[in-house]
């Protein structure tokens, strides 16, 4: 077990190192770092000071050293627009994005698993066919258009829910969160559902495939033969055994949800880091883009690492195979 974790940690370090090289090369080869990291409106003295501070006047291998050093110190340059450290800007907006992402995951699981299990238990019923057709639609619908339609129906036509922003927030452990106030929840429902739709389709398919497979197993036949109520068979015996693939895939998809939050945040004007990224790209606020990139890469590697380790705990075969190889 510990051998496995150490190997995975080392691999993650190598990937982080490689990605930092790629980002650095991207900044230096595709663009000119002086252009990328220094505001076009800065005066000559300011430009020279920044060049010296970021070490841009050194040969490239020294520059890479500076880049790594500055990244470790958390200095990824200042935003041109906000005149604040880029890293700080992103970290400020991260809780909003994470709140949205977790809310979406929750919706996907709460609706997806029961619907998928139903479709797996009664594959030929009309309801199941409707559920499956819905999940195909969920895969095909472009997220941003669904968001627009949700706003049109629920905010403009029916007027039930607000269309933009985050609403009232309260402080929880020093972080601003929406889900503890009624106004915040109202603001959260539409964007979270929008973001959840794609993952919900995925969960429905996974749960259905799992249920179809598990329902034929001997232990389910035995549980039925023993005279257990079919509610107990489904809720305990089937549900437990379809969880492993669902949990793993959801873990892996968390990163995707955070990335796709970019679209949902733009549609609903949700003040998260994805909206910041889009605004920064459009305003050519490059330090923020570079900082976003580094943070997301780091986050992704972390998520993958955690999922790998969790998976090896849930399914020992993975760990054994990897250590032998």
């Amino acid at each position: 077990m510990s051998v496995f974790i150490i190997r995975r940690l080392l691999q993650a370090l190598v990937v982080i190192f490689l990605m930092s090289l790629i980002v650095f090369a991207g900044i230096n080869i595709v663009g000119d770092p002086v252009d990328l990291l220094i505001s076009p409106e800065a005066d000559q003295a300011e430009i020279e000071a920044t060049i010296r501070r970021l070490g841009l006047d050194r040969p490239w291998h020294e520059q890479y050293g500076y880049f790594l050093l500055n990244a470790f110190k958390g200095d990824l340059g200042n935003s041109f627009i906000f005149a604040e450290p880029a890293l700080k800007l992103i970290l400020q907006r991260m809780p909003a994005t994470l709140e949205l992402a977790f809310a979406a995951m929750l919706i996907a699981v709460v609706f997806g698993i029961p619907l998928g299990m139903y479709a797996g238990l009664k594959p030929d019923s009309t309801t199941s066919k409707t559920i499956m057709a819905g999940s195909i639609l969920g895969f095909s619908l472009p997220t941003f258009w669904v968001g627009l339609m949700l706003i049109m129906v629920f905010a403009v036509m029916l007027g039930w829910l607000p269309s933009t922003g985050r609403g009232d927030t309260t402080e929880l452990l020093g972080i601003q969160v929406s889900f503890l106030t009624w106004d915040g929840i109202q603001h959260l429902i539409l964007p979270a559902f929008n973001l959840a739709l794609f993952k919900m389709s995925l969960v429905i398919r996974l749960a259905r495939a799992g249920t179809k497979e598990v329902a034929l197993q001997d232990y389910i036949k035995f549980a039925r033969a023993k005279g257990l109520s079919s509610r107990r068979v489904v809720l305990v015996h089937v549900a437990k055994n379809i969880m492993i693939p669902v949990v793993t895939v959801l873990g892996l998809e968390l990163g995707g949800v955070i990335a796709f939050a970019v679209v949902t945040e733009t549609v609903f004007a949700w003040p998260g880091m994805g909206k910041l990224l889009i605004d920064s790209i459009q305003l050519l606020d490059r330090p923020v883009v570079v900082a976003y990139l580094l943070i997301t890469v780091f986050m992704f590697i972390l998520i993958n690492l955690v999922v790998d380790i969790l998976y090896s705990i849930l399914d020992p075969r993975v760990r054994l195979k990897d250590v032998k190889a």
């Binding site: 663009g31 990163g255 990335a259 796709f260 970019v262 883009v289 990139l293």
Partner: peptide, 16 residues
């Protein structure tokens, strides 16, 4: 493939 497509596309557009 471990990174979502939309993210890679956004970053490329940001650089290019």
């Amino acid at each position: 493939l471990s990174f979502p497509a939309i993210l890679i596309a956004l970053v490329l557009i940001a650089i290019l």
